[in-house]
């Protein structure tokens, strides 16, 4: 059953023309879908539609999770610089009116799950880029969302940190198995993270091609060296080049 879907959605901005669509996308319970496409193709717009942060010009957005059951992780950690890691993670619970002590307890638990139990009192400026992203992830997970939207969460991280975080996201995902939509412009990350990779064409973004990858999650240790990983990545790279009107 689909947790969230976009049906023939189009987004137009006044003065800038069409940014997206017509575009269709559905994500099923427990599925991880990656959206890959050239810059400006509307990947992040599609994500904001699914989050309900933006309305489509045409088409319909449906979503079963209610308010508070959808979480977004942005490209930057998007933390409140004046608040501790714990207060940042507790924010969604505080805004929902959860009892303060209970919110702090759940936030501490979420921080422990992302491996930051020692950093609860730290302010964002005291954290490394990777740690700040983990705090952001903990904040997204603290509400136990049914739909998790990840908007290029690794964009600002170095290679080793990205790989660690990608593996950890799978482990965390396995605990509650939310539906996940993962936006990226990195093909290998898409293949690693998702069992279905949707390649979008250049602006206005539409579906260019869809590739199904190995559905086994979390990924085995040497997944990145397997023939299957390599050939999926090759195929998607070719699609991506073709979607931009270039030969691979």
């Amino acid at each position: 059953m689909s947790v969230a879907s976009l049906a023939a959605v189009e987004v137009e901005y006044p003065g800038r023309g069409k940014a997206l669509g017509p575009f269709d996308l559905a994500v099923a319970e427990g599925e991880i879908v990656a959206l890959v496409g050239p810059s400006g193709c509307g990947k992040s717009t599609a994500l904001r539609l699914l989050a309900g942060l933006e309305q489509p010009t045409r088409g319909t957005v449906s979503r079963t999770p209610g308010r508070g059951e959808t979480s977004v992780v942005f490209q930057s950690p998007t933390l409140m610089p004046w608040a501790s890691a714990l207060a940042n993670v507790a924010l969604p619970l505080d805004l929902a009116g959860v009892d303060k002590d209970e919110a702090r307890r759940q936030a501490a638990d979420a921080l422990a799950r992302v491996g930051l139990s020692g950093a609860t009192a730290a302010k964002p400026a005291q954290l490394s880029g990777g740690m700040a992203m983990r705090v952001s992830l903990a904040r997204a997970l603290v509400t136990e969302p049914k739909l998790l939207l990840l908007d290029e969460p690794f964009a600002a991280l170095d290679e080793i940190t990205r790989r660690d975080l990608a593996a950890d996201i799978h482990l965390l995902w396995a605990e509650t198995r939310p539906a996940v939509i993962f936006v990226t412009h990195n093909v290998e990350e898409a293949v690693y993270m998702a069992s279905r990779v949707v390649v979008m064409s250049a602006s206005p973004g539409r579906t260019f091609n869809i590739t199904w990858t190995d559905p086994v999650m979390p990924r085995p240790a040497h997944f990145r060296t397997t023939l299957e990983f390599r050939s999926a990545a090759e195929a998607i790279s070719r699609d991506l080049a073709a979607s931009m009107g270039r030969a691979a």
Binding site: A51, T78, L91, L95
Partner: peptide, 13 residues
């Protein structure tokens, strides 16, 4: 920060 604003929107602040 506009992303923080979006986050507050998302959680219905």
């Amino acid at each position: 920060d506009p992303d923080l604003e979006r986050l507050f929107d998302l959680y219905g602040a």
